[in-house]
Design a binder for these strands. Structure first.
Lengths: 117, 117
DNA sequence: CAGCATCCAGGTTGATACTG
DNA sequence: CAGTATCAACCTGGATGCTG
C-alpha cells in the first residue's frame, strides 16, 4: 500500500505506528497464512508449491521473500546439484502460530458459510 | 481477489475453506483494524473520520459497509435532521478484540522499526 | 530444482463533486 | 451530517518463458 504521503500532510507515523496494523501487514499476502501454516515443519520449495495448490512459482517466491524480509521464515540454501532450498519458521514465525490458531478458532465460529467475496 | 478458477482446475473449496484465511479476509482492508479498534466504543460517522486520520468519506463508508456485511459491526440510523448514524461492535466484533490485542502484543515484540515496505 | 524477468488484469484505495 | 457517484492511480497477484 501507499507508504508515501505528500509533504505537509498528516505524518505517516501517526497512522502507521500501530503494532496491530504492522502485524496485519506481515501476513497480508494472499498465501502468507497458508505458507506459514505448512512451515510448522521444514519444507522445500517444490514441496510448498504442492502443499499450496494453485500458487505459481513466481508468486510463491515473492511471498517467501516477503516473509523472509519480515523475519518470519528462514531460507537455507544447499550448495548441491540439483539445487535444494529449505524453508522453516524463525522464532518470530513460531511465536505467531498461536495467533493463527486463535484466528482459526474465531473463523470457525464467526465466518461459517460466507459464500460472498 | 480472483475467487474464480477455471473449470477442471483445483476446486476452490480446497484452497479457500481455511478458517484462518477467512478471518484474515474479514480484516483485510487498509483501515478495518483501526476502525474496529475505535469501535470498542460506539461512534458516529464523523467521529470515526476524525479518529482515523487520512481516510476519506468514501473509503470510510466502504470499509464500514464491508465490516457490516461481515457482521462485525452494527449500523444504527436515527431518523433525525441532521442525520445521525451510530456504529458499534456486534458480538462477533467484540469477540475479535482479544485477537487484535494479541496481534498488538506480537507486533510490539516482532515488528520494531520496520522502515521498509 | 528453484528460481528470475516481464507483462498484464483486476481489485482496492483515493480525490472530488454532488445530495437528502 | 452522512452519505453517493464517478474516475484515476496504485498495488497485488498471476501467466509465461528463460536460467544456473
Amino acid at each position: 500500500m501507499a507508504r508515501t504521503s505528500f509533504e505537509g500532510e498528516i505524518p505517516v507515523e501517526q497512522i502507521e505506528v500501530c503494532p496491530v496494523t504492522d502485524t496485519q501487514n506481515v501476513i497480508a499476502g494472499k498465501w502468507k497464512i497458508i505458507i506459514l501454516w505448512h512451515l510448522r515443519q521444514t519444507r522445500r520449495f517444490g514441496e510448498l508449491q504442492r502443499l499450496v495448490p494453485g500458487i505459481s512459482k513466481g508468486i510463491l517466491t515473492h511471498q517467501l521473500r516477503e516473509l523472509e524480509a519480515d523475519q518470519m521464515i528462514l531460507r537455507k540454501v544447499y550448495a548441491e546439484v540439483p539445487p535444494k532450498v529449505e524453508y522453516s519458521l524463525t522464532d518470530a514465525g513460531e511465536s505467531f502460530i498461536p495467533i493463527l490458531e486463535s484466528m482459526g478458532e474465531w473463523g470457525k465460529k464467526h465466518t461459517a458459510n460466507k459464500t460472498n467475496r
